[in-house]
Design a protein around this nucleic acid. Structure first.
Lengths: 343, 343
DNA sequence: CGCTAACATGTTAGCGCTACCATCTTTCTA
DNA sequence: TAGAAAGATGGTAGCGCTAACATGTTAGCG
């Protein structure tokens, strides 16, 4: 039986040209092509030119998966946030993205939907991609997640809040922010103040602000009633929150909202109801979104530097990745009380 | 010289446990572990249990980079948008992300900053990651980018607008949207109508809406003056746009803004100036953002189903990835004229 | 009981790239 | 001019996983 030789086993990869083919076309070895593309300064200029020519001719696109496997590191940065529906996280992401992208890193975005188990799953997946670093919103994680990240040898950055962190930490003190606004309202002479939040178990940073708020009111010997809405921040929810305050606490003279979406929703709703702000009811928010600064009366709120927080976090991580000393593991980006006409 | 044998050359990868180690711990071969994790139905239940046990004991995290290299495909979906500063793209991304993540795909997000060369670079990078599909906002690409995507054998989805697409296409007809609003304004009796846009060369979809707007005004024998602002949509820019209209076209009775951010900024600014809307000047927008629906008077605008567009696009891509027939390569998600009190 | 089909598992050979070491050439120094 | 140092390039051996094929094992059938 003169059967034809079955030949070596073949697999089809992608049919894209490979480094090897570029090398052949340029008359050099594969490693030289690799160097010409990744560390051009280590290759003779003339050689590099020939390589680039071959790359263009063949339409070569480097296989980054193979490169990452061989070098045991990708240029991915894992970024984990609880929600994409909240402008706050989007702005932090923007700061991160800008800064990392400029340095050739690619963001891998994950959304936990405020679920710590989901976060753990995302972390697992992202570790599987040999990310160069991981940035996550918040200091609260599941035990399993702590276990994974604790043993990981790459930079871990926790943003948004300050506290006991795994590694790097950039954020602001939410409790102090809550105290700050409560003090402002007291300073304005309000004594009957209601806090309105939404899902404080999930948006626990708002819960921390509420805690600060309570401290100040307690110290002044005042009640600190809370109304908790069952859906996250939105203009609609804010309007509903105002209605609830008017119903449950007719004596209320000021409302401290957990965020600007709620506060602005309430403010616009108050106008529709014919209520004067702050004459009939004062309204304060948190975040400093543009929205609240363009309504009349302008919203009193606390500005948090979100995009800057993202940028700073990225810079710290990059410094670590460049093996430069990180001056401070923890950095407070602070906040600014912006007094508008709504209080 | 009885030097010790240098032994085989060693490289350190990550010191994470590997499939092989799990296999040894479970007393099976590596491929069985692979199958137990990826295609559990192809492995005996008892074996699978032993594998899972070993995985947990060792804290094994699969190396997805290696898996992707071996299988020549990652579970990445490349998503390219021109900006993260615009709520519109965020909402489309949210629709995409939700749908893809539920099916175990990971979004790779890229931001072109409205630069087609940047888009080409991103596409190159993403192809290098063996993405399963690519979703990009818009139908306009550089020639180089067309070249790359034209030869690519994975699904390509272009969203936001409708037209001659590379492969799949989900969006809406912006020119028709422009016509629709112009007709509405004419129907309301306005004759002196100014269009205010921002960077129409970059936000060319707004340019398409302007083109539709012009058609309708032309047909009615009316002028269609344009004011173009030099920064992208924001409340501030909208306020500036109103000022410019009042200065340059004192006879203007209505302003058709390119988007809701501009329109709402102008509306709030008009209130600060003491102008009646629509009595002194009518204002219309585009997008149907919540913002515009909560000001008084409520903004007349055109609602585009952004999150739904993202979901639909993702579903079409998934259908293709599942080798199911795609009923329509092109799908129009339409839009809705929402008449408020601002016109 | 022999034959086949379905299931379960293993063996082998890469996927395309880069780390590591080796080699060769050129330049500089004493 | 020898010897060292620096620069340029190449060979080899994996990185950790899965595709493709091969083999063994059990069930099903007349």
């Amino acid at each position: 039986m003169s059967n034809s030789n079955p030949g070596p086993r073949r697999r089809r990869g992608s049919d894209q040209p490979t480094l090897k083919q570029v090398a052949d076309a340029a008359g050099v070895s594969p490693i030289t092509v690799s160097r010409a593309l990744n560390t051009p300064e280590r290759v003779n200029e003339a050689t590099r030119a020939r390589v680039i020519e071959a790359v263009d001719k063949l339409g070569y696109v480097p296989n980054l998966v193979a490169g990452s496997l061989a070098s045991a590191s990708s240029r991915f940065i894992a970024v984990i946030v609880p929600s994409l529906a909240n402008a706050v996280f989007i702005e932090v992401i923007r700061g991160l993205q800008e800064t990392f992208e400029a340095r050739g890193y690619q963001i891998l975005l994950g959304n936990t939907d405020y679920d710590l188990d989901r976060e753990y799953q995302l972390v697992r997946t992202f570790l599987g991609w040999s990310c160069s670093a991981l940035v996550t919103a918040g200091l609260r994680h599941s035990d399993a997640c702590h276990g994974l990240l604790g043993h990981w040898d790459k930079p871990v950055m926790e943003v948004m809040e300050l506290g006991e962190a795994l590694d790097l930490n950039v954020g602001l003190d939410h409790q102090e922010a809550g105290r700050c606004m409560a003090r402002h309202l007291l300073g304005r002479g309000y004594r009957s103040i209601v806090y309105v939040g939404a899902c404080l178990d999930r948006d626990y940073r708002a819960g921390m602000r509420f805690a600060g708020h309570c401290q100040v009111l307690d110290a002044a010997g005042l009640d600190a009633p809370l109304i908790e809405l069952d859906r996250l921040g939105s203009l609609e929810a804010g309007a509903a929150g105002l209605d609830q305050v008017l119903g449950d606490f007719p004596e209320a003279r000021a409302i401290h909202f957990a965020n600007d979406d709620l506060a602005t929703g309430a403010l616009l709703h108050a106008q529709r109801l014919g209520l004067r702000v702050p004459g009939d009811i004062a309204i304060a928010g948190f975040n400093g979104l543009p929205l609240g600064q363009h309504v009349t009366p302008r919203l009193t709120t606390i500005q948090s530097p979100r995009e800057a927080m993202g940028r700073l976090a990225a810079e710290q991580v990059l410094r670590r990745l460049d093996h430069q000393p990180v001056t401070q593991q923890q950095q407070d980006v602070g906040f600014t009380l912006m007094v508008g006409q709504s209080t």
